[in-house]
Amino acid sequence: MEIPNVADKWSSGVNEIILGATKDKGGTRTKTIAIGGSKCVPFMDFEGNPGHKPVVAMDVSDVPPEDWPETLSKPFADVLNDPAKWAKKCVEQYGADLICLKLEGIHPDKGNKSAEDAVKTVKSVLAAVGVPLIIWGCEHDEKDNEVMPKVSQAAKGENCLMGIVSQNSYKTLTATCLADGHSLITMAPVDINIGKQINILVSEMDFPLNRIVMFQSTGALGYGLEYTYSIQERERLAALTGDKMMSMPVICDVGREAWRAKEAKSGDSEAPQWGSREERGPMWETITAVSLLQSGVDIIRMQHPKAVAAVKKCIDRLY
């Protein structure tokens, strides 16, 4: 019996975005990263061009993280006080495709660092690594609106991915990114309708659709992963059927969310039946990432080197 061909045909696809700018394009990056471009559901390349491989962005914070368990901070123990060295280690030793610099320390409750401090940090990280940069604010609207425009200007021409903007606060950073030639992350907390709305709002400011990356906030394994999964899956299907306001590549914040789970961070004595935390934590992050990959993700933010290695290997095998 002949097996019928059940492949779906898709009329459209995910936008392609280039992040980073080399010298000839007005930046100083030594490499650029292309994301998106998929014209099929993940891992079903018999239905269309799968586009670019998902990439891993490793998190670097401008201040030493206060809530990281020992398992997670150990590989970075020598660099946690120096974001530039930290970024370099992620790229050179752990194979990060790009760096996500989180400006945690500008938050009024977490150090309240100034815009000048943030600019200095951004410049030092740009100088230390050649990969493209994601620059992520502290998610305090007022402070981000004060600091991020200055950071954006300092990185002008580097084509960074800047974030995040939300329905309630998008005008300042959108205008700044437009002026300084950066790409932009639009955020809606696990809400596809608001996700589309923020894309429309940003596009109404003439921000090009092919410079937007969507962020739905991320649920870790056991902590709402399925909500994130189903929204991202629906976003991908909307992109494939031609919804221009849902055709952006997607970013996930896997590292931070996975390591907030007690299953990842609890010590061995707290939960002896769960196995060694040295294995358990990275595994929690890995499983969260590879599960979400199947819903359609283009950039995964990650933290532990072991998890990064496992996920990159998985991506290479599947693509």
């Binding site: 596809i192 309708n193 608001i194 996700g195 589309k196 709305q197 429309i200 709002l201 109404e204 629906r234 976003e235 909307a238 919804d243 221009k244 306001m245 849902m246």
Partner: peptide, 14 residues
Amino acid sequence: QHVYSDSYLTACRK
């Protein structure tokens, strides 16, 4: 048939 958003008319008219 389309994802709802408050500005769905604007989005679909494009």
